[in-house]
Computed example of a mutant assay.
Amino acid sequence: MTMAWLPGSFLCGALLGWVCLSVPGLAVEVKVPAEPLSAPVGKTAELICSYSTSVGDNFALEWSFVQPGRPISASQPILYFTNGQLYPTGSKSERASLLQNPPTGGVATLKLTDVRPSDTGTYLCHVNNPPDFYTNGLGLINLTVLVPPSSPLCSQSGQTFVGGSAALRCSSSKGAPRPVYNWVRLGSSPTPSPGSMVQDEVSGQLILTNLSLASSGTYRCVATNQMGSASCELTLSVTDSSKGRVAGAVIGVLLGMLFLSVAVFCLIRFQKERRKKPKEIYGGSDLREDAIAPGILEQTSVRGDSNNGLLERAPSASTVTTTKSKIPMVV
Rank of each mutant, 00 (worst) to 15 (best):
L6H: 04
G8V: 04
G8S: 10
S9M: 04
L11E: 00
C12Q: 06
C12V: 12
G13C: 06
G13N: 06
A14F: 07
G17A: 11
V19L: 10
V23G: 15
K31W: 10
P36G: 01
L37F: 04
L37H: 07
L37R: 07
L37E: 14
P40T: 03
V41R: 09
G42P: 02
E46L: 04
V55P: 11
V55L: 00
D57Y: 04
F59G: 01
L61E: 11
E62F: 14
Q67W: 06
G69E: 00
G69Y: 00
I72W: 10
S75M: 06
Q76D: 12
I78E: 11
I78D: 05
L79E: 00
Y80W: 08
Y80A: 05
Y80T: 12
N83E: 12
P88H: 01
P88M: 07
L99A: 09
P102R: 02
P102D: 13
P103M: 02
A108R: 00
A108C: 06
K111W: 02
D114W: 04
P117C: 05
T120A: 04
Y123H: 07
C125D: 06
N128A: 07
F133Y: 10
T135D: 03
G137K: 01
I141N: 00
N142P: 14
L143C: 03
L146T: 13
V147S: 00
P148I: 07
P152I: 01
L153R: 00
C154E: 06
S157M: 12
G158C: 05
G163I: 15
S165F: 11
L168N: 02
R169A: 05
S172Y: 04
S172K: 01
S173D: 12
A176F: 10
A176W: 12
P177L: 01
R178A: 15
Y181C: 04
Y181N: 06
W183N: 02
V184I: 14
R185Q: 08
S188L: 13
P190F: 07
P192Q: 01
S193I: 08
G195T: 11
G195I: 12
Q199F: 08
D200Y: 10
D200N: 07
V202S: 02
L208H: 05
T209I: 14
L211F: 05
S215N: 08
R220F: 04
C221G: 03
A223P: 00
T224Y: 09
Q226E: 14
G228A: 06
S229N: 07
S229T: 05
A230D: 09
E233D: 09
L234E: 07
T235N: 09
L236Q: 06
L236R: 09
S241F: 15
S242G: 11
K243V: 12
G244H: 07
V246C: 12
A247M: 13
A249D: 01
M257N: 05
F259A: 11
S261L: 08
F265L: 09
C266D: 14
R269E: 15
Q271T: 14
K272D: 13
I281Y: 08
Y282N: 03
D286F: 10
E289R: 12
A291Q: 03
A291P: 10
L297Q: 13
L297F: 13
V302F: 09
N307T: 14
N308T: 05
G309Y: 03
L310E: 13
E312N: 11
A314P: 12
V320K: 04
T321L: 12
T322N: 11
T323A: 14
P328C: 08
M329V: 14
M329Y: 15
M329W: 15
V330H: 12
V331Y: 11
V331W: 08
